[in-house]
């Protein structure tokens, strides 16, 4: 397919560039805000010497302050730990349940699948109130386990559903061959099917990880010590004081808070692409 040059520009380079600018500009803006000294941050938008797109006196003060004044590294670690653990649990449950729903015949399979999915629809706004009851019953308040065990409530349905779709795309013959060779059903599942499903598992895992990384309200309710908080809750509750916002530090926190996930994504993005394909093909 040979394209004329101008066509390639008009239909490809220009729109792609615009999309990249649109997507990334807020990040650039966060970055500029984070390194801009305070006295520049609060200048009139009409000020003659206003140069919003860059700063002549970049400073790391906001980053330093964020690290010195708050327990940001702790929050980062907490968030990471909670996200990994809850993702792990959800993947484990979702993997087994997804396989059962996709492959095994048993009564009520359809109904069970639907009801697992329906839990994803339960409006979460006020769920934290009765959930607080359970957290108290299990004495989980102010421990990471409060979140590690509650996040799966919205992650499992998602993982199950995604993986169920993925398993359906794997030809049944593969499994049957293995079983003829003497493998048990369980063995075939673990040794044959799961390895093939790795891209699907990764994509479900990455998505689940993002959702836990993002969560706000449960983390706000169930954790109380400053050093146990997660990034979104910590940043919001320490850097906003009534009618005073620490914009520089807030943006620094937002940036630092998304970098770890960004790294994970950049490693896995290709897997993610192939993984999702499988799951939705069926």
């Amino acid at each position: 397919m040979i394209e004329q040059r101008w066509k390639r520009w008009v239909f490809f380079y220009i729109p792609l560039t615009l999309f990249i600018i649109g997507t990334l500009f807020p990040f650039y803006w966060m970055f500029v805000t984070a390194i801009r000294p305070d006295h520049e941050l609060y200048r009139s938008w009409r000020a003659a010497n206003n140069a919003p797109f860059w700063t002549l006196q970049p400073t790391l003060a906001h980053f330093q302050d964020l690290l010195a004044r708050t327990t940001f590294p702790r929050w980062l670690w907490n968030t990471f730990f909670i996200a990994v653990a809850s993702t792990g649990i959800s993947l484990f449950c979702g993997l087994l349940a997804g396989y059962a729903l996709a492959r095994l015949r048993f009564p009520m399979a359809g109904a069970l699948g639907t009801s697992i999915f329906v839990t994803y629809l339960v409006p979460p706004t006020l769920l934290f109130i009765p959930l607080a009851d359970i957290i108290r019953e299990f004495h989980l308040g102010n421990t990471p386990w409060a979140l590690i065990l509650t996040y799966p409530t919205f992650l499992i349905p998602f993982c199950t559903w995604l993986l169920m779709g993925y398993f359906k795309t794997i030809p049944k013959e593969l499994e049957e061959c293995a079983r003829i060779d003497g493998a048990t059903r369980l063995g075939a599942m673990v040794r044959i099917i799961f390895p093939i499903a790795i891209p699907g598992i990764l994509s479900a895992g990455i998505f689940a990880f993002t959702l836990s990384w993002n969560e706000f309200i449960y983390a706000l309710i169930f954790l109380s010590s400053p050093e146990r908080k997660t990034v979104p809750v910590g940043v919001v509750s320490e850097l906003i004081r009534g009618d005073i916002y620490f914009w520089g530090q807030l943006m620094a926190g937002a940036l630092l808070g998304s970098i770890p996930v960004a790294l994970v994504y950049s490693f896995f993005v290709e897997y993610y692409v192939t993984g999702l394909t499988g799951s939705v093909k069926g």
């Binding site: 792609l16 999309f19 990249i20 997507t23 990334l24 807020p26 990040f27 803006w29 966060m30 805000t33 993002t210 990384w213 993002n214 706000f216 990034v231 979104p232 940043v235 919001v236 807030l250 943006m251 926190g253 937002a254 808070g257 998304s258 996930v261 960004a262 994504y265 950049s266 993005v269 290709e270 692409v273």
Partner: peptide, 22 residues
């Protein structure tokens, strides 16, 4: 690859924080 990964950034950053940026 780089562009694909970059495009995902808005999806990664915690909503609360990106909304503050907006």
């Amino acid at each position: 690859r780089l562009v694909r990964a970059a495009m995902l950034l808005p999806f990664i950053i915690p909503t609360v924080l990106s909304t503050f940026a907006w």
